[in-house]
C-alpha cells in the first residue's frame, strides 16, 4: 500500500507492506511516520462529518462520535443519506445511534430548531 504521511508538512511518501506477518513501512524519515504507516495499514480510522436532511427543508450538521474504520465510511454516508429529521436537536445530542453498524453514533454539531429554516 502507498500513502502519504500526514504527521508533518514533510509529507513522506510511504510504502507499506506485510512480510511474514510483520508490517514494514518504507519511505518515512521519523518514527512518527512509521507508527502512522502501520496504523493506516492495519486499522485506518476516520471521522466523518456530514449533513442530515430535515423534513420540510434545511439540514443539520453532524459528526461521528469518534473515528471509526475507514472501510465503513461509505456505509455511514449511505445511511446518513436516508435520514430525514422531524424534531429539534441540541448540539451534542446523539441523532443516529450506531450508524450503519459502525459502532459510532452521529452527533449533532449545531442546534436544530425544527420548523425554523436556517
Amino acid at each position: 500500500m502507498e500513502t502519504t504521511c500526514i504527521m508533518c508538512p514533510m509529507g513522506c511518501a510511504l510504502t507499506i507492506e506485510e512480510q511474514d506477518g510483520v508490517v514494514k513501512v518504507r519511505g518515512n524519515t521519523c518514527p512518527r511516520g512509521e507508527k502512522y504507516g502501520v496504523n493506516e495499514y492495519v486499522d485506518p480510522k476516520r471521522m466523518v462529518t456530514t449533513l442530515l436532511k430535515v423534513k420540510g427543508g434545511g439540514v443539520l450538521s453532524v459528526k461521528t462520535s469518534e473515528p471509526f474504520r475507514k472501510a465503513q465510511v461509505s456505509a455511514v454516508l449511505q445511511a446518513a443519506a436516508k435520514v430525514l429529521l422531524d424534531r429539534s436537536y441540541k448540539a451534542g445530542e446523539v441523532v443516529v445511534k450506531d450508524v450503519a453498524g459502525s459502532g459510532v453514533d452521529l452527533i449533532a454539531t449545531a442546534d436544530l430548531i425544527f420548523g425554523e429554516k436556517a
Partner: peptide, 22 residues
C-alpha cells in the same frame, strides 16, 4: 465549516467549526 479539525491547539480536542464557534 462543519468539518472537524478545529481547536486541537486551543482546546486540546478536535471540534467542528460550529462547535468551536459555539
Amino acid at each position: 465549516c462543519i468539518h472537524n479539525g478545529f481547536g486541537l491547539h486551543y482546546f486540546g480536542e478536535e471540534l467542528t467549526g460550529p462547535e468551536y464557534a459555539a
